[in-house]
Structures are given as structure tokens and as C-alpha cells.
Design a protein around this nucleic acid. Sequence first.
DNA 1: GATGAATCTTTACGGCGTCAGGATGCAGTT
DNA 2: AACTGCATCCTGACGCCGTAAAGATTCATC
Lengths: 213, 213
Amino acid sequence: MSESEHPARRYHHGDLRRALVDAARRLLEKEGPTALSLRAVAREAGVSAAAPYHHFKDKAELLAAVGEQGWELLDRRLDEAAAAHGSAHERMTETGAVYVTFALKNPALYRVMFDAMRESEGNPDRLTDKDHRFERLRRMLVEGGANPDDLMGLELGAMAAWCASHGLAEMIAFKRFDSMREALGGEDALMRAVLDQLTIYAHRPGGPSPSDG
Amino acid sequence: MSESEHPARRYHHGDLRRALVDAARRLLEKEGPTALSLRAVAREAGVSAAAPYHHFKDKAELLAAVGEQGWELLDRRLDEAAAAHGSAHERMTETGAVYVTFALKNPALYRVMFDAMRESEGNPDRLTDKDHRFERLRRMLVEGGANPDDLMGLELGAMAAWCASHGLAEMIAFKRFDSMREALGGEDALMRAVLDQLTIYAHRPGGPSPSDG
DNA sequence: GATGAATCTTTACGGCGTCAGGATGCAGTT
DNA sequence: AACTGCATCCTGACGCCGTAAAGATTCATC
């Protein structure tokens, strides 16, 4: 009862469920998404090929768990960035940068995360997580000067911001931007430059101050 | 010689290469991306499992050809939309709508297309196609009032527009937007509303007319 | 018509996701 | 402490996959 420090470390193998998710993430980083077979995950975790089926209905459910864990990590970082110092516009850009950077550094994991979110459509549990992400975006938009009563506008703005970040994350790796990346001084600067284009609505909601940046 | 109307209809099977690409697209629409195995494509085309290897190095190369054909079709539609009547801002939104609609109606094909483009990074042939897409975007931005001499700004703006469209295409299917979709009167209206948020920079480049829409 | 090359088929290999059935070890009862 | 039930894990098997080697077929050319 009190001997085991890890509350979940029990049963034959230990907490195999968590071990499998960890193994899957390790493989994703190391070998890329094509190498992520259920058998390989089981091998990495040191169990037989059929063992995962006592913890996940099928491969998709394992992937969903991996994606979920990825979102937990990313959500934590986004919360931090959204609560940081600086102007509302700076926080908005910085939060976007955190999102895009995460996706760039963990492209395979990010794909799994996005697919997992897409396939959990209608799942009430996961809906809460997604709502939290939208709530954070709406809050930042209001802090940036958006009209808090324009619910539709807030929703559209939040959606636009997320679309932009997601799209940027999937586009920025293109070689075509090498010269721009160089001219701006790195991937991070390029990212922020594009985000500035996209989040322009956040600090210019009604158009009161046309040029102050 | 002159009997066959199709210039490529020759050899044993006929133009198997094209037949395979067509079969792949048919399967993508009908069964989804998970059902798209090389063997299934060969089956659909009526040849043995190994036959495709005389026309494609491997499965990835077949997929690339499918994606390429998809881009040919989409590029044609985008060219039309970009040359349509209306204001520059209307054309911009309409072109974005065409892009997003295509992705929504052919989600599996669009994924293949985007992946093919991503994996053809560095290929000089395909680079030309991508440049054409950026050129179209830059032209529209200039028509919308952007400074033609601000090359960096044009590039960033084009990139931002593409990012936004791509992100929107992958996000709009979310159930979360059902109420908004309903309030706005359908998927098309929702799409245009978000695009309006995103292309705001197109008709307000320096911020001269804060509220005229 | 013969030749050589291109195209297609057959057969085979290892890896994959998944399932059925048997082995193993834990928790709680007596 | 032995028994029982069940969760956990392993072995073996099935069909499908991507891919390669080798043989068969048919086209282009002489």
C-alpha cells in the first residue's frame, strides 16, 4: 500500500498502459511516424505483441492516448505563455509561437495529437479540453481589445487564430522559405513575422490605432 | 498508330500508370485513406500486386502522383477564382473558399496532396508549381492594395494566407462549430466568416480605412 | 519471323494488426 | 495457508500489407 511510491505500479508488469504510451512517444521522436507500429511499441516496452490489447481496444486507441498526453503537455505550456508579462498582443504572438514551436519540434507527435482530437469529435470528455483551448483564445482576444459581448466575433477570432497557428506549423518547414528565414534571422523570427500578419485583428479590433507597432 | 485515339494507350494493359492513379483516387473517395493500399489499388485497376512497380518506385511515388494530379485540378479552380469578377477582397475570400471547399469535399485526397508537396521539398520540378501558387497569392495581395515593392511583406502575407486556408480546411470539420455553422447558415458561410477574419490584412494593408466593410 | 526490351504474373519473405487459447500471478475468501 | 477468480501476459495463428526475384507474355524493331 504505502511501499510503492508509484501509485500505479502494480499488476504483473507494472503500469503497462503508461509504459506503452511512453514507449510510443519515444519511438515517435526517434524513428518518425512510419516506424510507429503497435508491435514496435510493444517491443520497445518489452512485452509481447498482443499485450497492449489488455489496455487499448486497438492501435487507434493507443494513438489517442499518446495524443492526449501530448495535449496535456502543450496545454500547460500554452497556459504559461498566455499568462506571461507583456502587452496583450505580445502574449498572443508568444502563445502562438509556443504552439508552432511545439509542433515544429515534435512534428510526428503533433500529427498524432491533431488526428486524435479530430477523431474524438463528439466525445464529451475530450470536448472539455478543446473548450478550454478556445476559452484561452477568447480571453486573449478580449484582453487585446476585442468586444467581449460579440460572442460570434470572439468565436470566429479564436477559430481563426487556431487555424493560423495550425497551418503555420504545417507550412513553415517548406524549403521555399529558406531565404526569408535567413533574412529574418531564424525559424523563430519567421514564425513571429507570419503570426504578426495573422494576429493583426487582435490588436486592431475596431481599427482605433492604425499604426502604433 | 493512328487507330488508337488515346496516344498513351499502348503496351499490354494500356496506360496502366494513369489507370493506377485514377484507381487510387477512386479508392480515396470511396473508402477513405486507410483503405488505400498498393495492393488494393492494383486490385481496383485489375492487375497483379507487383504490376505497379513497373511505373512507380514504391507506394510513396504513387501517392505523390495522385497528389500531383490533385494539385493540377485544384490549381485550375484557384486560377479561375483568382481571375473572377468583384473586388480584390472578394476575389481573395472567394479563392480561399475554393481552396477550403476542395479540401473539405476531398479530405483524404487533400491530405495526400499536402503530404506529397511536403515530401517533394527540393524537387525542382514541383518547386515551380509551388512558386506558381505563391505568385497567385502575391498578385492578389497587390491587387488588394499591398505595397508591390515590399517583397518581404508580400511573401509573409502570401504565406499567412496559405497557412490560414490550410488550417481552416483542417479545423472546420470540428463538431464544436455546429452552432456557429447553423447561426451563419451553413459550412460555406462559416468558412467565409473565418476567412474574412484572416484576410483582413489584404484590404487594410496600412490601415487607411478602419471600418468600411 | 527473330530478337530484345518492356510489361505483367507468380511466388515468396518478413512485418503488420488482431484474435483465440493457454499460462501466470495477483486479491480476497475461507 | 490453500483455494478461487480474474486481470494480465504469452504463444501461435490468420489474413493483409509492401516489396523483391524470376519466369511468362507481348510489343517495337529489324
